[in-house]
Simulated scan of single mutants.
Amino acid sequence: MLPDGYSDVPAGKLAAVVTCLEMSAPAERHVEIDQPGVALSPVEKADPAWYRDLYRRIGAQWLWTSRLAMADAELAAILHHADVDVFAVMRDGRAEGLLELDFREEGSCELAFFGLTEAIIGKGAGRWLMNHAIARAWSRPQSPIRRFWLHTCTLDSPQALGFYIRSGFTPVRRQVEVFDDPRLTGALPMNTAPHIPIL
C-alpha cells in the first residue's frame, strides 16, 4: 500500500496509474460514423512479426511494450490460443487497427488490446471498433461471459479513460504500476514518446 503524499520513482523507471473497468451486461450500441473502405478482419494464427509491427505503430507513442518484450514462442502461444480472438482493422489492404479479445478466463472477456494507428484516428473508427468489440465479446457462442473488462493507464491517450466510460464500462479498481522505461531497455527507440521525459 502506497502512503499518502509523493513516492519517489527510481531513475530509469516509469510509473502509471492504472484503472480497471468492466461491464456486466452488453452496453447499448452507440451511434457510429460509417467507415467506407474500412473492414474488421479476423486474423488466424497471427504472425508475431506482423503483430508486433501493428502493435508498435499503434502503441509506441503510449509506450506499449509488453508484447515487444515477449519471445516469439510466448507471444504466439497467446495469439494462437483457441480462446484469444485477434482482429485487424483493414484499410486499403493495410492493418491500421487492432482488437484483441481474451476469453481464457471462464465467464470473462478481457479487451486485451484495442487501438488505431495515426492513419485512421480521428475519423470515427474508434467508436465503430468499440461497437464491434462489445458485440463480439458478448456473443461468442463457445464462451458466454458475465464480465467484459479492460485496463487503461495514465500513459495512454488522455481520451482513453473517458471513451471507455462513455462506451459503458465502469471503473472498479485503481493501481499504480512501476516498470522499466522501455526506451532505456532498448524495447523502443530513445526518441519515442518525447512528451514523457526520460530520467
Rank of each mutant, 00 (worst) to 15 (best):
G124H: 03
M70E: 15
P26Q: 07
T192K: 01
R136H: 14
R94M: 14
Y164G: 00
D102A: 09
W50M: 15
G186Y: 03
H132W: 10
P189S: 04
V89Q: 10
H195F: 06
A160R: 01
R140W: 08
S41V: 15
I120N: 02
I134K: 13
T154E: 10
A187C: 01
L2P: 07
M130D: 14
H195I: 01
R174V: 13
M190V: 08
H195R: 09
P194F: 00
L99V: 15
E105L: 09
I165C: 08
G162P: 02
M130L: 15
C153W: 08
R57L: 15
A193Q: 02
L40K: 04
Y164Q: 00
E118R: 12
P48R: 02
S157G: 13
E110D: 09
S24F: 09
P144W: 12
R67M: 11
Q142C: 06
L21R: 02
S24C: 12
A133Q: 10
R56H: 11
A88V: 10
L68I: 04
W64T: 06
D47L: 09
Y164F: 15
L184P: 00
V43L: 12
L150E: 01
H132M: 09
V9F: 03
D53F: 01
E105A: 11
L116R: 05
D53A: 15
V178S: 05
H195W: 10
K13D: 11
Q159D: 13
C109V: 13
V38C: 12
R94P: 07
F103N: 03
A82W: 08
L188K: 00
P42V: 02
L155M: 14
